[in-house]
Amino acid sequence: MLKWWKIASIVLVLYTLIAGLLLPVPQLPILAQSIRNLYYHVPMWFGMLALLIASAVYAVKGLGKKDLLMDIRSESYAKIGMLYGTIGLLTGMVWAKNTWGAYWTNDPKLNSAAIGMLMYAAYFVLRGSIEDEEKKARISAVYNLFCLPVFIVLIFVLPRLTASLHPGNGGNPGFNSYDLDSRLRMVFYPAVTGWMLLGFWLADIQIRLRKLEFKKERED
């Protein structure tokens, strides 16, 4: 039987897909119907953040216990986190093209997100460059713990200090002001929860596959 949170992710995402398209939304200038992207683009970043936090938690656990299974978990969460981040960037680009007029603007929020993702790309490069499993686990865990706080500062702190087109930054009203609209809330919260749980499910499959591969490598 599937775990309860996996079933919850199916129900919530299915609800998000249907209700997110059918329920009425507030009429806003420029955004128009594209405000519905709030249910699909934004949860990718919430999901990514949750997955990266999980990755850092298991990095700490791995450093403490010297358990390679913790390293497998940490890597898998980071991997799915980056998948979510990539989808977040791509969906954001489509949205930006249709509201701001360009796929990419030199906006602090966008550039910070790109830099942060490159830092995690370096995490995977670093892992690939170390043969010894224990050494790989230790060094990449330390680097992981450096990445997370920098990423959080990059995407949540720095863009708020400067002018930015992106909602929620630099004097630009966040979606909070629209979020007060209960019509958006009714889908937005289930959407964030659902996509987040789905991300953890994908990571769960990645972890279990890696464990099996790891076992096989040990046997060979």
Binding site: V13, L14, L17, I18, L21, L22
Partner: peptide, 14 residues
């Protein structure tokens, strides 16, 4: 017929 697209997306996800 917008609901047709919603139906298609739902089937796709399922």
């Amino acid at each position: 017929k917008f609901y047709v697209v919603v139906g298609v997306i739902a089937i796709l996800f399922v």
